[in-house]
Design a protein around this nucleic acid. Structure first.
Lengths: 357, 357
DNA sequence: AACCATGATGGAATCGTTTCCATGAGCAGG
DNA sequence: CCTGCTCATGGAAACGATTCCATCATGGTT
């Protein structure tokens, strides 16, 4: 194997110093004829600068990390595609990790990224402020996507978690002043509140009164939005959570249907939950939408394949990833703290009028 | 921001030389008391070795690259999860790229990985031998998963592409000796031949004679297996290909149904194609399975959600990724050239007896 | 007692790049 | 003609680890 072509080889072949080659290649000042010669020689030798040397010198790895709970969840696949598209446009590598929704694995992956000196990270967080403090403390530029760690209030929420807020502010060396938009972690999320509200209103309009929410890990905001949209105090039996695996989602859905046979509509907080709801309903011989109406968060290609096709709250997964990547790349300067993307209720066939007993 | 803790700090704090710290931390020889002291100091300072320094010195980045066509394809999501699981177990980072099935983007991503000195790569290839020669020439350890580049014969195929074979052998500096298992690129693929054969036999048993194959990019092997399984010369009108996008898959499926109204069964070469077939059939008011039987390659969670649930040829996507990662990590030593994983026909409800006109 | 083998140890080189700094040339203004 | 300024340029330091090699102490053997 022939040795790699280094900047030294180029310098020697072009009869200039390494500093000059480096300057030419990274856009510094150089005389036109020198520049031309260096470029010609570099091209001829097929020189490619090694990211290794550069990274070490600049004490940071280019590119960004991406942490998602589960790549077999189509929504995260879409999100990842968005991130990758932006990264490719910028010519930057993406280091991927799948957390399985487990804060411990998440913490481990953060540690791994730190070791790699990856200083930009896009994450669908599973852990809480404690999990994330090492990353922030180390000066990582973090952007949360799709959801925020629990107890970190978003821009649109009033307050409620002053403790965690103070902690995190201290980490950044800022005085712990109470403020309404405190956390220095930008985020890109869907407008859950509006999405859920629209869905609930739609179901209400069809006559449904006993509406359930079927959530997964990280769906606290959606559950909160659900409670708010319903207005009157919600029967907490109608708000159930799975733990992330498909099995657990199925169990939660099945348990929900069985323990509350009088419910007439279900709002699934994510596509894995929606999948579980469809399966559980079928298993229990509940017809959709005659016996139970179903709305699922996330528009995924297979939503249209179900019969009936599923009515969904679409959120722009790919855009979300792209925007998050833009945000994390534009580290310097003034960045928006929280980007909220619109959702859209796509009415297909899984909702009908409340069955009249 | 406080400077990062380096090996120098640890050495100084422990009163030893940097070489000793390095040895202790990477399992070299050291006296018990020195070792203990160094470890204690390192733990106390919360020292984490920087991958940057190490990588530069060893002239290689740890970890591995992963190139897939499209992460919104659930099968590749499964494959990626397998790779990530293995990488996590080994504590290695994974650099991800999505090629969109485009050889040009693939080549660009290979270039990016080369620049990062990533010397291990798992890929679902889209380009041909020409696309891959830079990677091999640079000494990358490559493992192909799910499929092989066109015109590179697999272990189970007789021959047929001596030209490309010789080229690639020359790239490795080996003499171009004709041999039956020539390419030094290990691979992990499903047993397409057996999977397709089983599916075709099953359809035959149900009385189907006009069976179509609906493929996507990279499904050449499956198409070949289809032709072989059918035995008699296949009506080439019944073998159609989409180009990778969902739209193109839909167009191909729709065109197939319309131009060959006498077909009674379709074998979709991947889940995106299967999805397209279901949609196209519905659009054309073809009932499944009364009017047309459908078998889809890939078992994905939503296959069960369709009505009727789809009969599929399951291939172990996650295992495939895991095995590929194991293979690429075990660079040294004797490695199996080609791992072929079994497929399984999972009979659900999308196939029925041929409609008798 | 002299010698060699062994093992622990630290200094220094090395990886490939960026960037600081000194040098020298060229040029304009006093 | 000298001074001061700008600009291109190259040498060398730095980044943080690994690893070669020389050194030194120890202990066993002749």
């Amino acid at each position: 194997m022939s040795r790699r072509v280094t900047i030294k080889d180029v310098a020697q072949a072009a009869g200039v110093g390494v500093a000059t080659v480096s300057r030419v290649l990274s856009g510094g000042s150089a005389s036109p004829q020198t520049r031309e010669r260096v470029l010609a020689v570099a091209a001829q030798l097929d020189y490619r600068p090694s990211a290794l040397g550069r990274n070490l010198r600049q004490r940071r790895t280019g590119g960004m990390g991406l942490l998602v709970p589960d790549l077999t969840d189509t929504f995260y696949g879409q999100l990842a595609e968005g991130v990758l598209a932006c990264a490719r446009a910028a010519g930057e590598p993406v280091v991927l990790g799948s957390t399985g929704g487990d804060p411990e694995q998440e913490a481990e992956l953060i540690g791994m990224l730190l070791e790699q000196s990856v200083d930009r990270l896009i994450a669908v967080p599973s852990g809480d402020a404690e999990t994330w403090s090492p990353a922030l403390r180390a000066g990582m530029t973090v952007v949360f996507a799709d959801r925020l760690p629990p107890s970190v209030p978003s821009a649109e929420e009033e307050d409620g978690a002053a403790h965690a807020v103070d902690d995190l502010l201290l980490l950044d060396g800022l005085p712990p002043v109470p403020q309404s938009r405190p956390l220095d972690v930008p985020s890109v999320v869907a407008d859950d509140r509006a999405g859920i509200r629209t869905a609930v209103r739609y179901l209400r309009g069809l006559g449904h009164r006993r509406i359930a929410f079927l959530g997964g890990p990280g769906h606290d905001r959606r559950a909160a939005a659900f409670r708010e949209a319903v207005g009157e105090p919600v029967d907490e039996e109608l708000v159930v959570f799975g733990t992330g695996s498909r099995d657990s989602a199925y169990a939660a859905a099945s348990g929900l249907f069985q323990s509350s046979p009088d419910l007439s509509a279900v709002l699934a907080g994510g596509n894995v939950l929606g999948e579980a709801a469809v399966l559980a309903a079928r298993e229990l011989d509940l017809r959709v939408p005659q016996d139970v109406s179903l709305i699922m968060y996330d528009d995924v290609p297979w939503a249209e394949l179900c019969s009936p096709p599923l009515t969904v709250i679409a959120q722009p997964g790919r855009d979300m990833g792209y925007r998050a990547a833009e945000l994390v790349l534009r580290s310097g300067g003034r960045r928006p703290r929280g980007v909220v993307l619109p959702t859209e209720l796509i009415v297909r066939g899984s909702c009908g009028p409340r069955r009249s007993w």
